[in-house]
């Protein structure tokens, strides 16, 4: 027994098709064009947040007005491939700079030069403004 006539089935199918197509094709506009976030309207922004705030770093030791680039892996005694994540992939610098200062010994003038990853590309973050060993704290990252 047919609950719905053929014509009604076609109409329903047409309406469902149009609704689904509109949702799929136009739904992402809400977030991607109008910046309106809804759990019902899916934007397709894959890996949009991946890598953000990652620092491209270079540590330098300043001595007698001269700066020398140091290899953070070598200073901390790690192999690049097996180094812990906070040494390899630098996002926050407190823990890393404290470890470097401890390894380099007292009185070291350690400077950081870094750019960080943003949605607009690389942006300047640190340019050796301060001696990290002077400001490093005992705890936290």
């Amino acid at each position: 027994m047919q609950v719905l006539s053929q014509a009604n089935r076609r109409r329903i199918r047409g309406v469902v098709f149009c609704l689904c197509a509109a949702l799929m094709l136009l739904g992402p506009m809400a977030t991607q064009v109008f910046d309106h976030h809804s759990k019902w309207l899916r934007p397709w922004q894959m890996f949009r947040d991946t890598g953000l705030q990652l620092l491209a770093v270079e540590f330098r030791v300043r001595q007698d007005g001269q700066e020398r680039v140091i290899d953070r892996y070598q200073v901390l005694g790690y192999e690049r491939a097996t180094a812990p994540k906070w040494v390899r992939r630098v996002v926050k610098i407190r823990k890393l700079s404290r470890a470097l200062c401890e390894a380099l010994g007292p009185g070291t003038d350690l400077r950081i030069y870094a750019e960080w990853a943003t949605l607009d590309g690389w942006q300047p973050r640190f340019a050796g403004e301060q001696n990290l060993c002077r400001h490093s704290r005992r705890k936290g990252r």
């Binding site: 397709w44 894959m46 991946t50 992939r89 990853a117 949605l119």
Partner: peptide, 29 residues
Amino acid sequence: WGAVDKTTVAFLSGERMEHYLMWFYLGSD
């Protein structure tokens, strides 16, 4: 919409790709 999201100067210049490369493979160098 995936392409629309990537149509930015940062992505098309390869900088965002570099972020991914460093995040997953190279680390902060």
